[in-house]
Amino acid sequence: MALKKKAGQQVSPKKTPLHDTSGDAQRTRLLAYLREHGSINTFEAIRLLNVLRPGARIFELRARGYKIATHLGVLKDDQGRLHHRVATYYLGTNAPKVPA
Rank of each mutant, 00 (worst) to 15 (best):
I46A: 07
Y66A: 01
T70N: 14
G73V: 03
G55C: 06
N41K: 00
T70G: 09
V74K: 15
R62Y: 04
V51Y: 14
G65N: 06
I58V: 05
F59T: 09
A69R: 09
R64S: 11
G65M: 04
V74E: 14
P54K: 01
N50K: 07
R64D: 13
E44R: 03
L72H: 14
G55D: 12
R64Y: 07
Y66Q: 05
R62D: 05
R53H: 14
L61K: 07
T70L: 07
I58Y: 10
V74Q: 15
R53V: 05
R53E: 13
Y66G: 02
H71S: 09
H71V: 05
H71C: 09
L75T: 05
L72Q: 13
T42R: 11
V74P: 15
L48F: 06
Y66E: 10
I68M: 08
G73D: 15
V74W: 13
A56Y: 14
F43V: 01
K76G: 07
E44Y: 03
A63Y: 03
Y66S: 02
A63R: 08
G55S: 07
L61P: 04
A45I: 01
E44G: 02
R57V: 01
I58P: 04
V74H: 15
R62C: 04
G55A: 06
G65P: 01
K67R: 10
P54G: 00
N50Y: 08
R47M: 10
T70Y: 11
L48S: 08
N41S: 00
R64M: 14
A63L: 06
H71K: 14
K67V: 00
L49M: 07
K76I: 02
L72C: 11
I68W: 10
E44M: 02
R47V: 03
E60H: 04
V74R: 13
A45T: 00
A63S: 06
I58H: 07
H71D: 12
R57P: 02
A56E: 15
H71N: 11
A56D: 15
R62M: 08
A69M: 06
L75M: 13
I46Y: 12
A63P: 01
R64C: 08
E44N: 02
